[in-house]
């Protein structure tokens, strides 16, 4: 039943927090090797959707397979094959970058911690800061560490919630390279952003989420900035 050619297969996913319905009967299929960019205003449900894929939040109803694994019955396999970046760094401020990466590697029971932590640190150009406590790093550098941590266990799917927020120009360039390397190695990614232009720059496919629904879903090819911006504006106004 594990269909590895689908990175994500979601059927009628729904989630409500108290009085607010965040996701309503969301369906989405994404083949492996694709970079899907999800656009949406704040409160559209992007973060909740990604948290459900990452097994951090439980859906109220519906079904989702990630890398062919069921999020409800095989969450550990989902987590083993998925790298996640959220709005927070998910790091310990009083541990050094190296200690944070080693701790994550221990949690993933990875052999060769030292080498792998060094490799991801170099990939994100933070190898000179390995000995610094995370607390002392700027927001942008913490974000890089978070990304390094997400790459540590060589996930086949990256789940990235606004990965570029707080990154400077150099770091955005690094991130683009990381994403294209990941894709070149056969990896897939779901990336959220509110920027139409960044979405067009990063994605193979663009999806707009509004009020818990997918209201737009097109491949990158043939989309131009002005058209997409026009469509997005119709949905992006806050509720």
């Amino acid at each position: 039943m594990t269909d590895q050619t689908q990175a994500i297969a979601v059927q009628s996913l729904a989630k409500a927090f108290g009085r607010t319905a965040v996701l309503q009967n969301l369906d989405l299929a994404m083949p492996a090797g694709q970079i899907l960019v999800m656009l949406g205003a704040n409160g559209a449900g992007k973060t909740t959707f990604l948290r459900i894929l990452a097994t951090l939040t439980r859906a109220d109803s519906g079904k989702a397979l990630v890398n062919g694994f069921d999020i409800a019955s095989q969450p550990e396999e989902v987590r083993r094959t998925t790298g996640v970046v959220t709005h927070s760094a998910m790091l310990y401020g009083d541990l050094t970058v190296r200690e944070n990466l080693h701790f994550a590697a221990r949690m993933f029971r990875m052999p060769g911690r030292e080498a792998r932590a060094g490799a991801v640190a170099r990939q994100l150009d933070i190898d000179r800061r390995l000995g610094d406590r995370v607390r002392t790093l700027s927001h942008g550098l913490q974000k890089r560490v978070a990304l390094a941590r997400a790459l540590l266990h060589r996930p086949s799917l990256l789940v990235l919630d606004e990965p570029e927020s707080g990154l400077d120009q150099v770091a955005v360039g690094l991130f683009e390279r990381v994403l294209s390397d990941h894709k070149a190695n056969g990896g897939s990614a779901v990336v959220t952003t509110h920027s139409v232009d960044r979405g067009l720059a990063l994605g193979d496919r663009l999806v707009i989420l509004a009020r818990g629904h997918i209201v737009f879903d097109q491949p990158r090819t043939g989309l131009d900035s002005a058209t997409l911006r026009d469509i997005y504006a119709r949905y992006a106004e806050p509720n």
Partner: peptide, 13 residues
């Protein structure tokens, strides 16, 4: 702090 608990919960255990 920095939602490290989410990081723990992302471990495959």
């Amino acid at each position: 702090d920095r939602d490290a608990l989410d990081g723990l919960m992302l471990a495959p255990v």
